[in-house]
């Protein structure tokens, strides 16, 4: 009986422990369909979610995390590129948490909205294919210390998504 009481007290204290982080939903930056997740069709590791759309420079690319966050926006390509212009040239919006986990969105085309900003699902550019890309898409990646997290997304290849679709959950 005493042991049970002790166990209950311990469980209660665990339940009351403050949590250091919050969970955030991640939604699609624009309407489209999932073209790759953990592996490409070729079997090569990808470790992120790609969402493609048939038209380039049409939809605005929104930040996907459902929360107000400060976004660090890096412009590496200023022109309209839809089908790739080489690895490392992708435009990027990222938020790095203090524990090193980082959420990144790549490949969008620079617009007047492409600057460092603090916002909740706001546009940082238009859908495009800057960097290492074969067509217009968004690459959504969650990583830490150079290793991609592959457990955060819940969509599968071929699935249609729109801006209210939960792609996954992070933190």
């Amino acid at each position: 009986m005493r042991n049970t009481t002790k166990m209950l007290a311990a469980l209660t204290s665990l339940a009351l422990l403050p949590t250091a982080s919050s969970a955030y939903s991640v939604r699609s930056p624009f309407p489209g369909s999932v073209t790759a997740t953990t592996y490409y069709s070729s079997g090569t590791f990808h470790g992120a979610v790609d969402i493609g759309a048939s038209s380039c420079n049409y939809w605005g690319a929104e930040t996907g995390v459902v929360a107000t966050l400060s976004w660090d926006v890096s412009i590496r390509t200023t022109g309209v590129v839809c089908n790739g212009n080489g690895s490392g040239n992708q435009n990027e919006a990222k938020h790095a948490w203090s524990d090193g986990y980082t959420f990144r969105q790549w490949h969008w085309i620079k617009t007047s909205d492409s600057y460092d900003r603090t916002c909740d699902r706001c546009q940082v550019g238009n859908i495009g294919g800057t960097g290492n890309a074969t067509g217009p898409h968004a690459h959504l990646q969650y990583d830490r210390y150079g290793t991609n997290v592959t457990s955060w997304y819940s969509v599968s290849k071929g699935q249609s998504v729109n801006r209210s679709t939960d792609v996954g959950s992070i933190r």
């Binding site: 919050s22 929360a67 107000t68 966050l69 400060s70 938020h95 790095a96 948490w97 203090s98 603090t118």
Partner: peptide
């Protein structure tokens, strides 16, 4: 400071 800026934002 903790949840929006993750400690990285000087002006905040």
């Amino acid at each position: 400071n903790q949840f929006v800026y993750s400690g990285h934002h000087g002006p905040a």
